[in-house]
Amino acid sequence: MRTGYLAGSFDPMTNGHLDVLVQGLNLCDKVVIGVGVSATKKPMFSAEERERLIFASLAEVLPGRVDDVTVETFSELTVTAARKAGASVILRGLRDGTDFDYEMQIAGMNAEMAPDLQTVFLPARASNRHITATLVRQIAGMGGDVSPFVPKPVDAAIRAGRE
């Protein structure tokens, strides 16, 4: 059984994150989502809320694979968390050339630290290439409509937080 590890903040889960997760499930039997937590950052959603939104979002597009996903929080190196999760593959999404250059550096460092883990790059669909969680947080924070950029459960949670 091949287990993939998909790390990120998922704050909030975007359509781009969901796209990469679905692609990862096409390659792996199981995907562990590592929700990065930092004591110094103020998140939009708690780790527990992010987990709930990840599952709700996946259930809308791929309900038959929800049981093949687990979510855990981590604050250590991704390679350490991936090993603890039993992963053999680290899944990384790419939006553009800038992402590629940055991710290649990370993949190289990870390969030195953990040669047993293979990094797999998954290209974002054209409709998702411009989406970042940072921009979604900024738009939402200013009262803008983020519905084109996030799954429906995430949009509903953001809207509920404004009320």
Score class of each variant (00 low, 15 high):
136 V>M: 06
13 M>N: 00
102 Y>P: 06
123 P>Q: 11
52 R>T: 13
87 A>I: 11
113 M>R: 10
70 T>N: 01
104 M>R: 13
8 G>R: 02
64 G>K: 09
96 D>A: 13
111 A>W: 06
154 V>E: 03
40 T>Q: 11
158 I>W: 08
133 A>L: 05
144 G>E: 02
95 R>S: 11
101 D>C: 05
27 L>K: 09
108 G>I: 08
123 P>R: 06
27 L>G: 03
52 R>A: 14
126 A>L: 13
33 I>W: 02
66 V>E: 10
100 F>V: 14
120 V>S: 06
151 P>F: 09
18 L>F: 05
143 G>N: 12
35 V>P: 00
135 L>K: 02
69 V>L: 07
7 A>Q: 02
100 F>R: 03
159 R>G: 01
106 I>R: 01
55 F>C: 04
31 V>E: 00
139 I>S: 05
49 E>T: 14
61 V>P: 04
37 V>Y: 05
78 T>N: 10
149 F>R: 00
83 R>L: 04
11 D>R: 07
160 A>R: 15
18 L>D: 00
147 S>Y: 07
25 L>C: 09
158 I>E: 07
110 N>T: 02
124 A>M: 10
148 P>G: 10
158 I>N: 03
151 P>H: 07
130 H>Y: 15
154 V>H: 10
20 V>K: 00
28 C>W: 04
15 N>R: 14
140 A>F: 07
63 P>C: 09
130 H>G: 08
30 K>Q: 12
103 E>H: 10
44 M>L: 15
135 L>E: 06
150 V>L: 09
65 R>Q: 13
18 L>P: 01
115 P>G: 14
58 L>E: 01
28 C>G: 05
88 S>H: 08
138 Q>S: 10
117 L>A: 11
10 F>A: 02
132 T>E: 03
1 M>Y: 11
46 S>Y: 01
149 F>T: 02
52 R>S: 11
161 G>H: 12
75 S>A: 15
149 F>N: 04
14 T>G: 03
7 A>V: 07
117 L>M: 14
39 A>P: 11
126 A>W: 08
5 Y>K: 05
70 T>D: 01
89 V>L: 15
8 G>S: 09
106 I>H: 07
123 P>I: 08
108 G>T: 08
74 F>I: 11
70 T>R: 07
123 P>S: 12
91 L>F: 10
93 G>L: 04
103 E>A: 10
126 A>Q: 14
63 P>E: 03
63 P>Y: 06
156 A>R: 12
142 M>G: 01
136 V>K: 01
155 D>C: 10
133 A>V: 02
92 R>I: 12
56 A>Q: 15
20 V>H: 03
24 G>S: 08
90 I>A: 02
30 K>H: 15
11 D>H: 08
130 H>E: 12
127 S>W: 03
143 G>Q: 12
24 G>D: 05
115 P>M: 14
56 A>N: 05
82 A>S: 08
152 K>G: 07
131 I>P: 00
113 M>V: 13
50 R>E: 12
106 I>A: 09
